[in-house]
Design a protein around this nucleic acid. Structure first.
Ligand SMILES: NC(=O)c1ccc[n+]([C@@H]2O[C@H](COP(=O)([O-])OP(=O)(O)OC[C@H]3O[C@@H](n4cnc5c(N)ncnc54)[C@H](O)[C@@H]3O)[C@@H](O)[C@H]2O)c1
Ligand SMILES: NC(=O)c1ccc[n+]([C@@H]2O[C@H](COP(=O)([O-])OP(=O)(O)OC[C@H]3O[C@@H](n4cnc5c(N)ncnc54)[C@H](O)[C@@H]3O)[C@@H](O)[C@H]2O)c1
Lengths: 212, 212
DNA sequence: ACTGAATTGTGAAAAATATCACGACTTATT
DNA sequence: AATAAGTCGTGATATTTTTCACAATTCAGT
């Protein structure tokens, strides 16, 4: 939209910076250097300065960054002033864990609606979130733009198609299935089994190398 | 160790390839082209061919790849012939979900041991995995080299230090804390709140751009 | 055997990301 | 006021990753 020039790698680090700035602010810290931040978030200090620089000159030479100012800046950049509502599809092991988690703590994101096919689960409240029947997706999804997908892999594509039809913009997909969507819709995959296996692979083949 | 030349980006995709090859094999498919694979895993076909090429010439020009051969090759490359034992620390919402999940299905990885501080949980079996008291980490960790960390963020560093002392090689860290470890130890972070927030950020600022 | 369609493996180019290194500026101290 | 220590912002460079594009090869059909 507005800042199409910001590299994706940078954009992915912004929420991380935001969280640590929040911590610092709560600890009453007034200023912070890229070096300090670097040690906290394990990102090279030059990378941090470069990342920040895409948004202009946010710091002061010889001084560092003013925590409060930087935090305020990122709050608006990350749209932390408004709550983003998210739907969760598939209230199983993983889905239930997410429903119990409070994403509001650091991020203004709230899972407001959940769906499942299991009649045992439909009608219940989990972590304060109502669970609706997946067949009522049409009516209950409202204008929610982001969905978390934690259904069995075989169901992933069918449900995705429904979400797309209903006008979803982004999907956080935890199933191992690589879902197909029209290209204006954004899908991020978090594939836990792959992550675990990749870690094991790195251990066996890259020992003593620098960590990621 | 042996193949230090393989790019990290490639290494991270290997488990994904492996899983899809497994699917194809189970479906009785005998051959596959990089183009087909590309559509299934959503990775550019040239990238797939390049990835495979680091391991030598695995395919045949004009034909594609033999599924069974490729699968066998990756099985040994990814050490799928031997089971990797993993410990899980923190049997809460997220930890419990993982204990119920069968990582053996596609990957020869098994969570064999879990630890928690809560006396209610200690002594129970969850998903067939015994939960030990965190104070018995010393005795019960044995020679497990990989740990999944799903404890509260404030506990993350303390427990990490214990794991390091006990000789762990890799940690899959789900806490928002950025833990410090000696540099021969590998840590992969999966930061769910960051992932969700990053997705939201992309939706607001990169609409209509190509998905990741 | 020949032809045409399919597909690999890879050199070369492009794009994306990370890091180095330093001039310019700020603050604190004497 | 001068000096020293600290730190940013960024041009330049290095590294990593992706993509293009095509010669070489294989296969299937005639
Ligand atoms: N649990 C883990 O640790 C883990 C790890 C890696 C990957 N995953 C993946 O995450 C996904 C969820 O895993 P899980 O362990 O929570 O599975 P689960 O079986 O516990 O939960 C799946 C839920 O989806 C519901 N469901 C089934 N069909 C549905 C439909 N058509 N519409 C709506 N809901 C439907 C089920 O009723 C169930 O509640 C799976 O794809 C799994 O492969 C899970
Ligand atoms: N649940 C989610 O959806 C979610 C999302 C994002 C991040 N996280 C992060 O994942 C981690 C786990 O989340 P959760 O929701 O499962 O939390 P949880 O509170 O449900 O579970 C934490 C578990 O760790 C145990 N524990 C506490 N101190 C311990 C210690 N010293 N040694 C061993 N065990 C100890 C607790 O008894 C509890 O069982 C947290 O750091 C959280 O921030 C969770």
């Amino acid at each position: 939209m507005d800042q199409n020039k910001i590299p994706q790698a940078t954009a992915k680090r912004l929420p991380l910076y935001y969280r640590f700035l929040n911590n610092l602010n709560q600890q009453g810290k007034k200023r912070v250097s890229s070096k300090e931040l670097s040690e906290a978030v394990k990102v090279d200090s030059a990378t941090i300065r470069r990342d920040f620089s895409y948004f202009g000159a946010l710091g002061k030479k010889g001084y560092g960054y003013n925590v409060e100012y930087l935090l305020g800046f990122f709050r608006s950049t990350l749209d932390q002033h408004e709550v983003t509502e998210v739907a969760l599809i598939g209230v199983g092991n993983l889905g239930t864990a997410f429903l119990h988690y409070n994403f509001m703590k650091n991020n203004n994101i709230r899972i407001t609606t959940a769906f499942d096919a299991d009649t045992e689960k439909v009608g219940t409240d989990i972590g304060g979130v109502p669970v609706y029947d997946i067949h009522h997706l049409e009516e209950k999804l409202d204008d929610i733009k982001v969905a978390i997908l934690t259904v069995p892999a075989v169901e992933a594509q069918v449900i995705t198609d429904k979400l797309v039809e209903k006008g979803i913009s982004g999907i956080l997909n935890f199933t191992p299935a690589r879902i197909s969507v029209p290209k204006h819709i954004r899908v991020h995959h978090i594939d836990l089994a792959v992550e675990l296996q990749a870690l094991v692979y790195f251990l066996k083949h890259y020992s003593l190398d620098k960590p990621e």
